[in-house]
Structures are given as structure tokens and as C-alpha cells.
């Protein structure tokens, strides 16, 4: 694989390749809007289940709103992971990436970024609606958007590892959840705490910073792991 590479690609061409991958993924995804909407619809439905299961009293729902929101966001982002590599693995695109001579780590990062733009960001924009319906005050909206937006960066990165590890397995759905959920628990803890503080009108910067730290750590390490896993799956 790497033997075919004559010289190390320079930084500019790496960025260019990453940008092309990002653009390609976004274009393809926008052609298949149904797939995009599914995790969002799932998110809305799950958050609707709780008032029906617990109680319609907003005062009671407000107590659990942050937790409900985050569990729903975690499951929705998990649901979207199956699409991350599946089509590219089927049609050989991943193999092309691995052989392209560009560092696979950078391309994995671009794919994960596209995945976040297509699922994490829309989830962050939907989250306030769900939060308001669960009794959160309008003042909480910025905090909720920020925490879900930052938290889903980390979730997408962790998820990209799980998706890469389960590449090519026939029934990967439950296994993907089993691999990804335990690793996502710190994100859930900090994210839910940030949202909870926002809902109660308290400063939420501390857990948000911890979330950002997780996201940065994920940005530096997760693409390495998922690139390694993709290479193994292609051998």
C-alpha cells in the first residue's frame, strides 16, 4: 500500500484531498435526503415518548429534560453511524482512499467532519425544540445548542471508530451500539450536565469545556484509530 507512494504528500495536497472528500460526502448525502432525515425524526420521536411515558407536567419533565435530550441525541447519532462507511465500503471508494497515497487519517477526519455536519449539527439545531417541549425555558437555548453541537463532534469521532471496526460485518447494528455506547459515556455525562445547568439558568461553561476537551482529544486520536481499522478491513 504505502510502498506505491513515491514521496510524502505535502500539507497543501492533504488539505485539498480532505476538502474533496468532505465535498463529495456532502453532495452525495444531499442527494439522499431521506437518509439524512431519519436520525432527526428518530430523535424527535424518542423525545416525544417521554412525556407520554412519564407525565405531561412540564415541571416534572423539566427535571429530566437534559437527560432525555442527551440519551435521545446519543441514540440518534448512533443510528446515523451505519451510513458513515457502508456505501463507500461497498463500491470500493474506501479502498481507493487507502491506495490514493494520501494519509488515510486525514481522509477519515474529513469523512467524520462531513458526518457531523449532516447529523450532529442538525441535531444541535433540533435540540432546543425538543428541550422547549420538555419544559426548558427559552433562555436555555444557547447552552443546549452549544452543548449538543460540541458533544456530537466527540460522538461522531467515537462513532467513526466503531463504524470502522464493524466494517463488513453482516449484522453490525447491535455490535456497533455495544462498542460505541460505553466509550460515549463521558460525552453523555458532560453533555447532560451542561444542558441541565443551562436549563436551570446556571453557568454551564465548565462542563462545556470538558466536552470541548473530549472533542479535541477525539479529533487528534479517533481518525488514527478509524484509519487503522479501515486498513485492517481492506487487507
Amino acid at each position: 500500500m504505502s510502498d506505491t507512494r513515491t514521496a510524502a504528500p505535502d500539507a497543501a495536497s492533504v488539505l485539498e484531498a480532505a476538502r474533496l472528500v468532505l465535498e463529495r460526502d456532502l453532495t452525495l448525502a444531499l442527494r439522499r435526503r431521506g437518509q439524512l432525515v431519519q436520525p432527526l425524526a428518530f430523535f424527535v420521536i424518542v423525545t416525544t415518548l417521554f412525556p407520554l411515558a412519564i407525565s405531561p407536567e412540564l415541571a416534572r419533565l423539566r427535571e429530566v429534560a437534559a437527560g432525555v435530550l442527551w440519551v435521545a441525541a446519543l441514540l440518534a447519532s448512533l443510528l446515523a453511524l451505519e451510513f458513515l462507511f457502508r456505501d463507500d465500503a461497498y463500491d470500493g471508494t474506501l479502498e481507493q482512499y487507502a491506495l490514493s497515497g494520501q494519509p488515510l487519517t486525514g481522509l477519515m477526519f474529513a469523512k467524520t467532519a462531513a458526518h457531523w455536519l449532516l447529523t450532529g449539527l442538525p441535531l444541535a439545531l433540533m435540540a432546543p425544540l425538543a428541550a422547549l417541549s420538555l419544559g426548558a425555558p427559552p433562555d436555555a437555548v444557547p447552552g443546549i445548542v452549544a452543548s449538543v453541537a460540541v458533544g456530537t463532534i466527540a460522538l461522531s469521532l467515537i462513532g467513526s471508530i466503531g463504524a470502522a471496526l464493524t466494517l463488513g460485518l453482516r449484522r453490525s447494528g447491535v455490535l456497533l451500539a455495544l462498542l460505541t455506547l460505553p466509550l460515549s459515556l463521558p460525552v453523555l455525562i458532560f453533555g447532560a450536565r451542561a444542558s441541565e445547568l443551562a436549563i436551570h439558568g446556571e453557568p454551564y461553561v465548565a462542563p462545556l469545556e470538558l466536552l470541548a476537551a473530549l472533542a479535541v482529544l477525539g479529533i487528534t486520536l479517533a481518525p488514527l484509530a478509524s484509519a487503522a481499522a479501515v486498513r485492517i478491513s481492506l487487507e
Binding site: 471508530i161 471496526l165 460505553p182 459515556l185 463521558p186 473530549l214 487503522a228 485492517i232 487487507e235
Partner: peptide, 25 residues
């Protein structure tokens, strides 16, 4: 062979996460 190498990646990812999980919990 693939089982070996794939699960090895997971084990390494897991050990990086163990202290983070412990701290967050």
C-alpha cells in the same frame, strides 16, 4: 487474523478511554 487485528485496535481505544471514563464517572 482480521479478528485479531480489529479487536486489538478496540482494546487500545478502550484503554485510552478507561481513565477518561473513570474521571467522568
Amino acid at each position: 487474523q482480521r479478528a485479531d487485528r480489529t479487536s486489538a485496535v478496540l482494546a487500545v481505544v478502550g484503554i485510552v478511554n478507561v481513565p477518561i471514563i473513570h474521571y467522568s464517572v
